[in-house]
């Protein structure tokens, strides 16, 4: 028993590295046959619709409220000795640099990541992936390539939308509940605005898009057993993606800022 406890960290690390190796191998399979990519372009557009367009409402709702809460809480912290037009700068920078990409990614982990893992996992346990292979399709290109590419293309667009509605939410809360005018809000917003800030969120979202969709595809593709295996794939996808988002968020910030 004691030996098992002592060996647990090593076994855990061994398992993590094994899974990571399998993940890298699966992802590299996407790049083995670029000549075949054109066969899967139409599927990629379908996935852009599913991953991107259908996620717009949830992204708008979460970003509006993120902006509103940022506005209210920053005004509360300023109290009386900071000019209220600072609210605009805090909302703008927080939304563009952090909240729009990260909150959107966390929400999309649930909406997109869990859906992809469950969908591909169900296809695995009901032999649909074997059927794809038996029809001479490459299952990696048929199932994984369109979803990952769609994620990398659509997440940045979603973050642009989230940034716009986040700032809108912050402005709305500022003029409705705080003693801030529209002029003051945008004065503050412009004071510390750097064009790079807008690109920073987009760059992050590109990596988040790849991470969430690729982890989901990997988990679904390797699902085992029946309904329990599919559920486990979806859960692991959400947990792993959330952890990876915050880790990547730090790494990208450290590199780019």
């Amino acid at each position: 028993m004691l030996i098992q406890i002592l060996l647990y960290p090593f076994n855990f690390l061994n398992k993590v590295f094994t899974i990571f190796g399998e993940y890298v191998l699966l992802m590299t399979k996407m790049f083995h046959s670029p000549r075949e990519w054109k066969d899967y372009i139409s599927l990629t557009f379908d996935q852009m619709m599913v991953i991107g367009t259908k996620s717009i409402p949830i992204v708008i709702i979460t970003s509006i409220f993120s902006g509103m809460v940022t506005s209210v809480q920053s005004a509360y912290q300023f109290e009386s000795w900071t000019p209220t037009w600072f609210v605009g700068s805090i909302v703008g920078e927080s939304i563009l640099l952090e909240l729009a990409p990260v909150i959107s990614a966390l929400v999309l982990t649930g909406r997109v990541g869990a859906t992809i893992a469950a969908e591909i996992g169900t296809m695995r346990v009901t032999e649909q992936i074997d059927a794809i292979e038996s029809l001479s399709f490459n299952p990696v290109l048929y199932l994984i390539f369109p979803r990952v590419v769609a994620g990398m293309c659509m997440f940045p667009i979603l973050v642009v939308i989230a940034s716009f509605f986040g700032i809108f939410g912050g402005w709305f809360a500022a003029i409705m509940t705080l003693d801030v005018t529209t002029y003051d809000f945008f004065k503050g917003f412009k004071t510390w605005f750097h064009p790079f800030d807008a690109f920073f969120g987009i760059i992050k979202s590109f990596f988040f898009g790849f991470t969430i969709t690729s982890i989901a595809c990997f988990q679904g593709y390797n699902a085992k057993g029946g309904a329990q295996g599919v559920g486990e794939a979806a859960t692991v996808t959400v947990v792993t993606s959330c952890v990876m988002i915050v880790v990547l968020d730090y790494i990208i910030s450290e590199i780019l800022i």
């Binding site: 169900t122 296809m123 009901t126 032999e127 649909q128 074997d130 059927a131 794809i132």
Partner: peptide, 8 residues
Amino acid sequence: FQSGALFD
């Protein structure tokens, strides 16, 4: 396939 494996 045993279950048909039709694409859902």
